[in-house]
């Protein structure tokens, strides 16, 4: 089974680490091996925050990834920083509301989703990260959508937020499955 090496990047406060943890919990529920590694420096405040999630069916060697298979970029600095790192044939998903540009690479699958605008439209601007998660999973079957949705629900206590996230996830999935 493929090894997924995923980098999720954005501003601190956009739910970057949360998104990584959703994937990690979902991987755990599928019985996979997984590592979740945050950038734990001062970058947590203000600048580019990111985390790395590695998912595999075998024991995982390096939790540090230099050429990820998937990048979820939630702002322009993240897209600028990680676009060129993605392995050829890999996936870039970006929030085009905030990146202001689409990915330029032609040797990867690029999905530009106006996630912040969609989330605002859904009345849940803080769920932009979940829109991107839905899009990423629809574009590239890293894990089963059901286990990711279950992990997402399991990590939030507020039922209103659960409902909002569910809507954001479905909307993202539609965006991600467009050709």
């Amino acid at each position: 089974m493929a090894v997924h090496e995923i980098v999720i990047a954005g501003f601190g406060g956009q739910g970057v680490l949360f998104l990584g943890e959703v994937l990690a919990q979902a991987a755990l529920s599928e019985g996979r091996e997984v590592t979740w590694l945050p950038a734990y420096g001062p970058e947590q405040r203000g600048g580019t925050a990111y985390c790395t999630v590695v998912i595999s069916s075998e024991p995982i060697g390096s939790p540090v990834v230099s050429d990820p298979t998937v990048v979820i970029a939630m702002n322009r600095p993240s897209l600028d920083r990680f676009e060129h790192a993605v392995r050829p044939g890999g996936l870039i998903v970006c929030d085009s509301t905030l990146t202001g540009r689409a990915p330029e690479r032609t040797d990867v699958q690029a999905v530009a989703v106006p996630a912040t605008a969609i989330a605002a439209e859904l009345g849940a601007v803080r769920s932009a990260n979940v829109v991107l998660l839905g899009a990423a999973l629809a574009a590239h079957p890293i894990l089963a959508a059901e286990s990711v949705r279950a992990a997402l629900d399991g990590m939030v206590a507020d039922p209103q937020v659960v409902a909002r996230n569910a809507a954001a996830f479905e909307r993202g999935a539609r965006e991600g499955s467009r050709p």
Binding site: E21, A24, L28, E33, V34, T35, W36, L37, P38, Y40, I60, P63, V64
Partner: peptide, 10 residues
């Protein structure tokens, strides 16, 4: 080390 301390694993 810092990675082992900060990393989550099952």
């Amino acid at each position: 080390d810092g990675i082992l301390g900060q990393m989550m694993e099952p």
